[in-house]
Design a binder for these strands. Structure first.
Length: 616
RNA sequence: GGCCCCGUAGCUCAGCUGGAUAGAGCAACUGACUUCUAAUCAGUAGGUCGGAGGUUCGAAUCCUCCCGGGGUCACCA
């Protein structure tokens, strides 16, 4: 920021002129002055005390005096303990307002940080998207906007897990129990329909298992394998996987279907294609509702085979090793990790195999320098392993890999559990927030001048703004509690609160009549208030906020910024007349300031993927 | 059990690259709409920053240990 640079360079001059010392400018710490003290910006002098060999208070006085004499911006100063509080001149505030009024200054010059592949959705095709996916997708979308802003060429991708046991379960259940039900025949969304049959399968399996437990074979296994520490129920709960793999009729059918699929059986492939197509149509609808899209979709059914080739290649190079049973492993104990299976003994691929394939295909497609995966923190270890293996393989992008790991979303009642039916469905949730927004709009009448369509769009933006802000205001790394009731709150620390500040500004500008933003004279305005200075300070800090959000991969910084800016504006708006200001110069100053605030609010929310309503 | 993450007001979260008396929102209570949109503003109340040591002029922030919660260590994804 230019003020910090300006003051820093003066302080550097002070040290070299007066004390013949070269001090790194990173030693100069500035912060906006706390409300309870006089001043606008504060220099922390403690780190400099050592070099000056004087008491903190004296150092502050000396530097303050030096700055007062040399800078047109510094108008007064005071020292409290080791803090030098600087009060800045009207010249500074006026010039700063000009600076932040320049829309160019909100965006970045053409810096080019190269290509970055961003994977921010990785759905399974056996069930619809839920609240957890929404957090994933919103974080990813926001990071796309932010990374793009700071100069990356971002390629937005998703990886669709369209193969494997899970989808076969849905397929088998549909074949057995659906009676030919389709999205068209039932009016159900495709992904929801498939999800229902996934549940159907689970129920059928459970019944089969319970039935089997009453038989003689079950009794024998229980007696032989139980170590006597747990009761019968607990034993069979633990044994469920073995049952599915070794004894279950349904399990056998699913595995047969999986083999048929791998062998390319036309009937199975046709069913698979049909059902996946339903799911994709459903996903597309959900994505559209969230306002996100992808440059490229990868399917694991396309990439898993290449993964096998890569494992073979690593084996040839001697990076991996083969066990007697034919399975292939990598030893990562040098990096503090374990042995890790890369290919099963029967030659089929595991989860990580296809990730290897996907990574390389992406490089062939885009030659990116870096790749970011937005995936939940339950997979932290998986990505450590994946990245280490890619490094061992010498992949050219291996040093540019990042797992943007986000925490799980809990409900006030605890974890979401599909078995207990507590999973919050993405489509339901979106519909609900928009509905609540609509109900609130009806009480207000602020949208009377809008057409039916404009009104619907504004309501959608308010509802989705509430939902998105609620999820993005929390640091991605942290596990969070999501209260569905609070997500539709429109007051307080929410998206609509920020939208409201913006809409108020639009309203003021409408009523102000025509004016030329670039030629508003503010020269005669001298009594710039604390509220106004605070707003300008915030606007000056905006770029740092964006850079921090990009550097830390944390959109919550932008959420915090936009909220604080909106709050400061609401206060300013309440305490100051704009259109009927005390003077022409004051009116001009405040109009200009309002325009700049509106631009920053809109821009910061847009980096979160939230759009502004025109009225509310 | 090994490794990783988390613990701040009744609830949800900021603050964590060390800096002044730890901040917001919700919930509770009080006040402000004939004046640019009250989805707003102002105020009251609410804290052993999980605990104990240590480093420092200064610790919610850094280090060690302990307690509590979660995740992960599959020929699952």
């Amino acid at each position: 920021m230019h003020l910090y640079a300006h003051i820093s360079s003066l302080i550097s001059d002070f040290f070299s002129d007066e004390l013949k010392l070269e001090i790194e400018s990173s030693k100069f710490q500035f912060t906006p002055t706390k409300k309870e003290f006089d001043g606008d910006y504060t220099l922390v002098v403690f780190p400099l005390v050592r070099h000056m060999k004087k008491k903190p208070e004296e150092c502050g006085e000396i530097i303050g005096q030096y700055l007062l004499e040399r800078s047109d911006y510094v108008e007064a100063f005071n020292v409290v303990k080791g803090f030098l509080n600087l009060s800045l001149s009207t010249t500074f505030w006026r010039e700063s307002l000009e600076l932040v009024s320049d829309p160019e200054k909100l965006t970045y010059p053409d810096t080019n940080k190269g290509k970055l592949v961003l994977e921010y959705s990785s759905p399974n095709t056996n069930k619809p998207l839920h609240l957890g996916h929404i957090r994933n997708i919103l974080i990813g979308w926001s990071m796309y906007r932010i990374l793009q802003r700071v100069g990356y060429e971002v390629i937005k991708t998703q990886i669709v897990n369209d193969r494997g046991v899970a989808i076969c379960k849905s397929m088998l259940a549909w074949k057995k129990f659906a009676g030919g039900e389709t999205p068209e025949s039932s009016g159900k969304k495709g992904d929801h329909l498939i999800g229902e049959y996934y549940v159907t399968f689970d129920k059928a399996l459970k019944e089969e298992y319970e039935q089997w437990q009453t038989g003689a074979e079950a009794e024998k296994i229980f007696r032989e394998k139980n170590d006597g520490k747990i009761d019968r129920n607990a034993f069979f709960k633990k044994w469920k996987n073995e049952y599915f793999n070794e004894k279950s009729q349904l399990g056998a059918e699913v595995r047969q279907m999986l083999r048929d699929w791998e062998d390319g059986d036309p009937n199975v492939i046709a069913l698979w294609e049909k059902m996946n197509a339903w799911v994709y149509a459903g996903f597309d609808e959900t994505y559209a509702g969230l306002g996100v899209d992808f440059d490229k979709t990868y399917f694991e059914s396309d990439t898993y085979k290449l993964g096998k080739d890569i494992v073979e290649e690593g084996l040839q190079k001697g990076i991996f090793y083969k066990m007697e049973d034919g399975s292939i492993w990598v030893d990562l104990s040098d990096s503090g990790m374990d042995q890790k299976l890369l290919l099963r003994s029967d030659g089929t691929s595991v989860y990580i195999t296809q990730d290897l394939g996907t990574a390389r295909i992406r490089y062939e497609d885009y030659k990116m320098g870096s790749m970011v995966y937005v995936v939940g923190n339950e997979q932290d270890y998986h990505f450590q392993v994946l990245f280490e293996v890619l490094k061992l393989l010498g992949e050219p992008y291996a040093d540019g890999l990042l797992h943007l790991s986000y925490g799980m979303v809990d409900l006030p009642t605890g974890k979401m559990k599909s078995r207990e039916g507590t999973v919050v469905d993405a489509d339901d949730l979106m519909a609900e927030v928009v509905e609540i927004a609509a109900a609130n709009v009806e009480d207000r009448g602020a949208m009377d001048e809008l057409s039916e369509e404009e009104r619907r769009e504004a309501i959608r933006r308010i509802g989705m703004g509430a939902l998105k802000f609620q999820l993005l205001k929390v640091n991605p790394k942290k596990r969070m509690v999501f209260n569905p009731e609070e997500s539709v709150d429109l007051q307080g620390h929410t998206g609509p609160y920020i939208q409201n500040a913006y809409v108020r500004i639009l309203s003021v500008l409408r009523k102000a009549g025509d004016f030329d933003q670039d030629h508003l004279s503010t020269q005669d305005y001298f009594r710039i208030s604390g509220d106004e200075r605070e707003l300008i300070q915030m606007l000056l800090s905006y770029r740092e906020v964006i850079e921090r959000a990009a550097g830390e991969f944390d959109p919550a910084h932008l959420a915090g910024f936009s909220y604080q800016l909106a709050r400061a504006y609401h206060r300013f708006y309440h305490d100051h007349q704009i259109i009927r200001a005390e003077s022409e110069a004051a009116r001009n100053f405040r109009l200009k300031l309002s325009v700049a605030v509106a631009a920053a609010l809109e821009d910061s929310l847009s980096l979160l993927g939230i759009a502004m309503p025109v009225r509310m």
